[in-house]
């Protein structure tokens, strides 16, 4: 870790100014990923602009019934918030499926979105990685890549995004609010916030230099919609997803057809993977097991598994089909969550 300057910002504008004034700086939230990467030498900021004490730690109900989650709300507080638990249990579940109690106490909403891949080659300075060092190559492609992407990867990068929370946000049609300086903000759909690697794997997200995540906005939940987050991992806790799925399902109680479905996968791609093809097939359809399987297969037909990770396709298919079955009551096991 090289020495760095430290600035504690007390306002958004102050943070943006400090960022501009210090080339090569990084915003510091909870730091659970950034400090980790600094120790590894992956991140070498000249200055840290500490935004963790900005007044962005509020969860506020919006007039339209949605929720505004400040960027510095800690993951544990977000998961425990009564309105999140009652209206967006999917989000609580996703958060609680990630990391550990002590990490969730520190990690922020904004930081969770901006966390970087856990690809071992990205973390190891002695191996090539286009994300860490553009143009150096991809160590994972020729190396061991059991945990890597099956969807949307490129010849330059096969990393996955590690967040559980972001998968839930993608399924919930959340938006990410960004402060761009001089009082300007913009909003980006959570599902569009993270990028596919293409030929610029160094850019994880669509965030522009100096922009600060200020909030996540959750739309009001559809009455009667049910949701679920399921994650498969190598140990029972404290492990990243091999694959995960977030589903929000709104069924017409009259004819049992799908009014709306949101299906997002984690652990399969460089970003939370919103399964648009599957959603389109299921919308207006009766979600019987056969239809669901066909829809999920249509989505996964786009996958290009690598030597070590083809298992992710049946795993994702199982997860999605089972989750939807559980939500429609077709599941032989437990009833659908409210």
């Amino acid at each position: 870790m090289r020495p760095f300057a430290y600035v504690r910002a007390t306002s958004l504008q102050e943070a943006a100014d400090a960022y501009a004034a210090h080339p090569g700086s990084r915003y510091l939230g909870g730091g659970t990923n950034l400090v980790d990467l600094m120790k590894l030498g992956v991140e070498t900021p000249g200055a840290l602009i500490d935004v963790s004490r900005l007044p962005l730690a509020e969860i506020r109900e919006l007039p339209d019934g949605g929720l505004r989650v400040g960027a510095t709300v800690r993951n544990s507080d977000l998961a425990a918030h009564p309105l999140v638990r009652s209206r967006y249990p999917l989000l609580s579940r996703a958060l609680l499926a990630g990391a550990s109690g002590q990490l969730r106490n520190v990690a922020t909403t904004g930081g969770n979105l901006l966390q970087r891949t856990r690809c071992g080659y990205f973390q190891d300075l002695s191996t090539p990685c286009n994300k860490r060092e553009p143009g150096s190559g991809c160590g994972a492609r020729d190396g061991l890549h059991r945990d890597h992407a099956v969807l949307g990867h490129s010849e330059h990068c096969i990393a996955t995004h590690p967040s559980d929370m972001a998968v839930a946000l993608a399924a919930l049609d959340a938006e990410v609010e960004l402060y761009g300086g001089a009082g300007t903000t913009r909003r980006v759909a959570a599902a569009e916030f993270h990028r596919l690697p293409g030929d610029r794997p160094e850019d994880d997200t669509v965030i522009r230099p100096g922009e600060i995540v200020t909030a996540v906005l959750l739309p009001a939940p559809a009455p009667g919609a049910v949701s679920l987050y399921r994650k498969a991992r190598e140990r029972a806790s404290y492990a990243f997803a091999l694959a995960s799925v977030a589903v929000v399902l709104d069924l017409d109680p009259g004819d049992g057809r799908v009014r709306r479905i949101a299906l997002a996968f984690g652990g399969l791609a460089h970003r939370p993977w919103r399964a648009a093809a599957a959603e389109a097939r299921l919308t207006g359809a009766v979600p019987d097991p056969g239809a669901v399987r066909d829809a999920v297969d249509a989505e996964l037909a786009r996958a290009r598994p690598l030597r070590d990770n083809a298992y992710k396709l049946p795993l994702a298919r199982h997860l999605a089909c089972d989750a939807i079955a559980e939500l429609t009551g077709a599941h032989p096991g437990s009833p659908a969550t409210p």
Partner: peptide
Amino acid sequence: AHGPVPDGAPGPAPRTPDGAPA
């Protein structure tokens, strides 16, 4: 909540806790 409230003392941006140069 994690961390105390911002340590008051509004001042010119950017600064460190004791006002040292950035």
